[in-house]
Nucleic acid binder design. Structure first.
Length: 208
DNA sequence: AACACGGGGTA
DNA sequence: TACCCAGTGTT
């Protein structure tokens, strides 16, 4: 069961997301599993605007996993170059493309792929198929550790359970809003004056 | 659970 | 140049 504050946060966040969610190429509807995966794979440790600058070109040149498997690693590195981590990412993508002709649709199977961890696996499946999976990155951790400071757990495993509980049926809309809220409002230096959660956010209550 | 990694961003 | 950062991998 969710607490009153948790339920309220869910509703408030979904509402916030409807008006404030950011638009990116990889968030368009009808994106395939592969297309969303490539975006999430690139988005780790990389600003979204940088990814947006190379994403369409990359998909044009590498529309499928098969195209990656047939390309030279040098060409792949060149396409990823502006994002950074090009050697790591190109190597991992080559490995993935030579091992599989299609991406798996179970989080556990995705996580067996090189450089694909919990975040990329869950984000990919949630944003593609609306799967009710927890998406937990530093933004989300920062948001929950403030709003629910008194109940937010210590260990990563418990944090994942906590995050899972709060994902509503509208999983995609919720998790996208959560990421954007962490990036735009509940930043490292939080913009509490324009936050919807002031009445129940433990961080705000305690700092007021 | 703690640390290392690779490399971009920032001071 | 030094330090920080954020997922993933490793122990």
């Amino acid at each position: 069961m969710l607490s009153k504050a948790e339920r309220r946060f869910q509703a408030d966040l979904l509402e916030w997301g409807e008006e404030n969610r950011r638009e990116y190429p990889w968030r368009e509807s009808d994106r395939t599993l592969y297309e969303v995966f490539i975006a999430e794979f690139f988005l780790t440790q990389t600003p979204a605007d940088n990814v947006a600058a190379v994403y369409p070109k990359f998909l044009e040149r590498f529309p499928t996993l098969d195209e990656i498997s047939k390309a030279s690693e040098d060409e792949l590195i060149e396409a990823i170059e502006p994002l950074g981590f090009q050697n790591m990412r190109a190597g991992a993508l080559k490995q993935i493309s030579s091992a599989r002709d299609h991406l798996p649709t179970e989080p556990e199977s995705l996580m067996e792929l090189p450089r694909v961890g919990q975040y990329v696996a869950n984000a990919t499946l949630c944003f593609t198929g609306d799967d009710r999976l927890p998406v937990l990155d530093r933004n989300v951790e920062r948001v929950y550790s403030r709003v629910f400071r008194d109940t937010w757990p210590e260990t990563e495993a418990d944090q994942l359970t906590f995050t899972q509980r709060l994902v509503p049926d509208e999983a995609r809309a919720y998790n996208l809003a959560l990421l954007d809220f962490g990036a735009l409002v509940c930043q490292t230096e939080p913009l509490c004056e324009r936050c919807f959660a002031n009445e129940y956010c433990v961080y705000f209550q305690e700092s007021a």
